[in-house]
Amino acid sequence: MNTSALVVMLGTMLLVTGLMIYFFMRVLNAPPKPEPDSYLDNDDDPDRQATP
């Protein structure tokens, strides 16, 4: 590949992949919010129950 094409391609792909991973990791590592929240799967999660 020629240099300019390679630079544009790698720069774009690394930027987009990096940002995709960064934001997805932020979602996975976000602190849990107390119940009731918008999601069914964690309804019985003891860590998420609101303290009386």
């Binding site: 997805f24 979602v27 976000a30 918008s38 999601y39 069914l40 799967d41």
Partner: peptide, 10 residues
Amino acid sequence: ESWGSRVGLI
């Protein structure tokens, strides 16, 4: 209706 999980919604 509700979503099951946050990752599922995304």
